[in-house]
Design a protein around this nucleic acid. Structure first.
Lengths: 213, 213
DNA sequence: GACTGTGAAGCCATTCACAGCT
DNA sequence: AGCTGTGAATGGCTTCACAGTC
């Protein structure tokens, strides 16, 4: 088992495979081939095998993969065999949606706290959470053992929130504000930009039209 | 000007550049170099120049780029010099957040209608929209000139909604359900998976820990 | 016969480095 | 002197193709 650099694209697909495997498992499927996984998630069979090969040999030649086992392996690889407490900063519509997003809640993630600085939002209930003032952030992070923060504030406040997260000792940040944030190298950060993909679509619609001239 | 195949990564970055340029422009900056753009969005200067080179020569040697002009070019390239009407299907928390998401509304996108099949949601107001039954979908799409659909329903309903969108003649789909959807080649589709990036973070946190053994 | 695991080949994107302008 | 535009070099991801195994 070689544990060299794993391409981020591989990790992305692994996350997708794991969700597909969950579905197969729920449907009672016990064995699956790389071709079936490929078909189910829209990549090539060789890609599936290469991706898995970064982490070990999970299949049986001539047979395929055991769904339950492979699912467990992918979960362990992705760190989903434990529960991660999340802190969301920003209790606007996006923050609200994220708090109640089932995709986070069922798959090993647990929103432990929501914060905002807006007095009209502090104290508001979201599910079984109460929006807390940012001043409580360090305390809650410590008590709830939070290692990952989610930024769901407007651009203008994003860097400030990131700084607070770094200072408080968070190890990873998921940023929904459409700006590049500055954080030290030891903090993992990824951006989710809700309009980039939309603009890829409009680019392609325009491009297609141009090619039909 | 060569208009060969443009890598999707280039389009993604173009979208990010364009937002950065908007910000510079609002701050009154008139000229910018590839190095400054690179710094601002977190890529290399050569990357910025290469990306722009796919579409033409926009800069002045020895000087840099005119912010306003480059902003306009990137907008036109991305198809943002027109307004795109969007139809959102799914009026849960995510659909709600998307309806009111400013990132969509200000940058050339306009949510023209929201749909749901749940009788408890139909008729509900979201901003100045009213949730409509799916049966109205074809009619509204036609009347409002909608070309892009957004899927914000649970996995179980996603393919069905995609089929409806295809049948109704939509040209592009942004899918927030974490499944691979089947659509014909002439329909552009992209997925936004809110938990993939989170799982990249947990993967990396686990990986780092493993490397410190 | 079927399917995995993997070196090799192919391909695509990024980086380099410098010529060309201003 | 400074910065763009770009061919060439590099690096890395994906696909191919087949040996290995059940």
């Amino acid at each position: 088992m070689k544990t060299l650099r794993v391409p981020e694209a591989t990790v992305t697909r692994l996350s997708i495979y794991s969700r597909f495997l969950e579905r197969l498992d729920r449907n009672g499927v016990t064995t699956v081939s790389s071709g079936e996984i490929a078909e189910g998630v829209g990549v090539s069979p060789a890609q599936v095998r290469k991706d898995l090969a970064y982490f070990g040999e999970f299949g049986t030649r001539g047979v395929g993969y055991n769904v339950k086992d492979l699912m467990k392996y992918t979960f362990r690889i992705l760190g989903l065999d434990q529960t991660w407490s999340l802190a969301i900063v920003g209790a606007g519509n996006l923050g609200f949606a994220l708090c109640t997003y089932r995709g986070f809640n069922i798959r090993s993630f647990y929103v432990a706290a929501v914060f905002d600085n807006d007095p009209t939002k502090i104290g508001k209930r979201i599910g079984n959470l109460v929006v807390q003032p940012l001043s409580k952030f360090p305390e809650v992070v410590k008590n709830e053992n939070i290692r990952i923060g989610i930024i769901a504030v407007p651009i203008s406040a994003a860097q400030e929130v990131a700084d607070l997260m770094v200072k408080t000792g968070l190890e990873a940040i998921l940023n929904f504000a459409p700006v590049a944030l500055n954080v030290p190298d030891h903090v993992e950060i990824r951006n989710v930009d809700l309009s980039v993909k939309l603009e890829i679509l409009t680019f392609n619609l325009g491009f297609k039209a141009a090619q039909n001239l």
